[in-house]
Amino acid sequence: MSKICQITGKKAMVGNNVSHSKRRTKRTFDVNLFRKKFYWVEQDCWVVLRISTAGLRLINKIGLDAAIKRAAEKGFLNA
């Protein structure tokens, strides 16, 4: 499974490691992802999501149902 948040759509970014001598080598900045289990009251079932911390804050702010609907509209949710 790829490292993409199912709620916000965040994914890994590419940047540079910069040494003391200013030599640059490529690196990736991974998203802070974790698997979290939520109880979806409207559907009366448990849902396991792979989300970032920003996605968790969004769910706490607007609710699980609204966050899932927003992610489905934007195409982030693949279920």
Rank of each mutant, 00 (worst) to 15 (best):
R50E: 08
V31L: 02
R24N: 06
D44I: 00
S21E: 10
R24V: 14
D44G: 04
H20V: 11
R24T: 13
T53L: 08
T53K: 15
A54L: 07
K37I: 13
K36P: 00
Q43M: 08
K26P: 10
T25F: 00
R24F: 06
T25K: 10
N32F: 06
K36L: 10
K26Q: 15
K22V: 06
L49C: 09
R24C: 02
R23S: 05
R35K: 14
K22F: 02
T25Y: 05
R23C: 09
A54V: 07
V48E: 10
Q43C: 04
F29S: 02
W46I: 10
R50N: 13
R23M: 12
F34V: 05
V47E: 07
D44Q: 09
K22H: 05
T25C: 00
C45P: 00
F34N: 10
V47A: 01
V48P: 00
F38Q: 07
F38I: 09
R24K: 15
R24P: 00
Y39G: 10
F38G: 08
D44S: 09
I51K: 04
H20D: 01
A54K: 12
W40G: 05
D44R: 03
S52L: 12
S19L: 09
C45F: 01
K26E: 11
S21M: 04
T53I: 04
K26N: 11
K22Y: 05
K26C: 05
S52D: 12
L49T: 06
L49A: 02
Y39Q: 03
R27P: 00
V31H: 03
V47H: 04
T53C: 03
W40L: 15
W40A: 12
F34T: 13
W46E: 14
F34Q: 07
N32S: 15
F29W: 11
T53R: 14
V48I: 12
L33P: 00
K22N: 15
R50C: 08
S21W: 02
S52E: 05
E42T: 14
H20P: 02
S21N: 11
F34P: 03
K22W: 04
A54P: 06
E42A: 13
R50F: 10
Q43A: 15
W40Q: 12
W46P: 00
R23L: 06
R35H: 14
F29Y: 14
T28C: 03
Y39F: 13
W40P: 01
H20S: 09
K26L: 14
V47P: 01
K36N: 08
S21Q: 07
Y39A: 04
V41R: 12
I51E: 02
W40N: 12
I51S: 08
F34S: 15
C45L: 09
K37W: 03
F34K: 09
L33C: 05
R23F: 11
R27I: 09
V48G: 03
T53V: 11
N32Q: 06
S19P: 00
S52N: 14
F38A: 12
C45Q: 10
Q43F: 08
C45E: 14
D30T: 10
R35Q: 15
R27M: 14
Q43I: 06
T25D: 04
S52A: 02
L33N: 03
R24Y: 02
S19D: 09
L33S: 01
K26G: 11
A54S: 13
K36T: 02
N32L: 13
Y39D: 01
R35V: 12
